[in-house]
C-alpha cells in the first residue's frame, strides 16, 4: 500500500509545487517508487518544475475519464527511474476531478508505488479538497508571515474534518509543518516571524525550514527540482526534510543569519 502525501497550503505562491517536486525526487532517489500528481487543474506547472513539460501526452483528467490508461499518462523521470509524474490538464475544468475518479487512480497507483505525492492548489477549492481527501500525511507549507500562518491553521482544521480518515473515524492524517522562504536576516529585523513564533501558534511537528534562495527560481527555470542541487542551502534543507520524513533525527539548519564576511563587517549592512 502506498502512502499518500498531500502538499497543501492556505494561500498560493508559498512553495507547494517547489516542495512537491523536491520531495518526490528525494523519496525516489532513496529507492522508493514514487509518483507525483499535479492536482492544480488549469494551472499546470509541476511538469515545468520537473522539466518534463515537452513529454506530456495525456494527463490526470484523461485517466479519470478513461481516455488514457494510467501507464500511458505517467511520465517516467529521466534522472531517476523510481520517479513518475502525472501531469494536470491545462484545459479541462476543475470539476473533471471526481472523487470516484481520483480514488480509482490512487488505488491503482497504490498497488505498485510506495509514495504518492499530491501537489495541491491553494486553499479549499475543488482540486485542493480532492487532494486532501485521500491523504495519509499532509505537509502544510507555510511562509513566516502572519497571514500565511493563519491560513495554514485554517487548512489544518479542514484537514482534521474533511478527509476520508476523518469521515471513517480512522487514525487522523499525520500533519507536518514545512516553513519555506525563510530569511533569517528578515526574522532578525522583526520583518518575519521566527520558527519559534510559527511553532508556538501552530503547534505542529516541524518537518523542515527551507531558506529563501535564488537557487529555487534557477532550478525551476531549468526544470530540475532544487533537491538535485546539493550545493544550495535550499537543496540541502530539502534533503534533510526527506531524512526527517523517513524517521531520522536531523538537526535543523539555516535558521541563523549567515555570518558576514570581512567585507560585510567593515562596511556594515
Amino acid at each position: 500500500m502506498a502512502r499518500t502525501i498531500v502538499v497543501t497550503s492556505g494561500k498560493g505562491g508559498v512553495g507547494k509545487t517547489t516542495t512537491s517536486a523536491a520531495i518526490a525526487m528525494g523519496l525516489a532517489q532513496r529507492g522508493n517508487r514514487t509518483a507525483v500528481i499535479d492536482f492544480d487543474v488549469g494551472l499546470r506547472n509541476l511538469d515545468l518544475v520537473m522539466g518534463c513539460e515537452r513529454r506530456v501526452v495525456y494527463d490526470f483528467v484523461n485517466v479519470i475519464t478513461g481516455e488514457a490508461s494510467l501507464n500511458q499518462a505517467l511520465i517516467r523521470d529521466k534522472r531517476c527511474d523510481d520517479l513518475y509524474i502525472l501531469p494536470a490538464s491545462q484545459t479541462r475544468d476543475k470539476d473533471a476531478l471526481t472523487r470516484e475518479g481520483v480514488a480509482k487512480v490512487l488505488d491503482e497507483l497504490g498497488k505498485t508505488f510506495d509514495y504518492i505525492v499530491c501537489d495541491s492548489p491553494a486553499g479549499i477549492e475543488h482540486g485542493a479538497t480532492m487532494a486532501m481527501y485521500f491523504a495519509d500525511d499532509a505537509i502544510v507549507v507555510t511562509n513566516p508571515e502572519v497571514s500565511s500562518v493563519r491560513d495554514s491553521d485554517r487548512m489544518l482544521g479542514i484537514l482534521a474534518s474533511k478527509s476520508r480518515r476523518a469521515e471513517n473515524a480512522e487514525e487522523p492524517i499525520r500533519e507536518y509543518l514545512l516553513l519555506t522562504r525563510y530569511a533569517p536576516e528578515r526574522v532578525a529585523k522583526g520583518e518575519m516571524l521566527s520558527v519559534d513564533d510559527v511553532q508556538e501558534i501552530l503547534s505542529l511537528k516541524l518537518l523542515g525550514v527551507i531558506p529563501e534562495s535564488a537557487d529555487v527560481l534557477d532550478a525551476s527555470n531549468k526544470g530540475e527540482p532544487v533537491i538535485l542541487n546539493q550545493q544550495s542551502d535550499a537543496g540541502q534543507a530539502y534533503a534533510d526534510v526527506i531524512s526527517r520524513y523517513l524517521g531520522d533525527e536531523v538537526p535543523h539548519r539555516f535558521l541563523e543569519a549567515r555570518k558576514k564576511g570581512l567585507f560585510g563587517r567593515l562596511f556594515g549592512g
Binding site: 493563519r150 491553521d153 485554517r154 482544521g157 479542514i158 482534521a160 476523518a166 469521515e167 487522523p172 503547534s203
Partner: peptide
Amino acid sequence: KPRVGANAGDGDNGSGGLLVTRPVRSGQ
C-alpha cells in the same frame, strides 16, 4: 461526522462532556 478535531481516544467522556487532545484550529 465524527467530532471535529477528534482523535483516537478523544470524545465523549461518558457524562456528556467532550475531551479533545489535538489543537482546535481556526474555523473549527
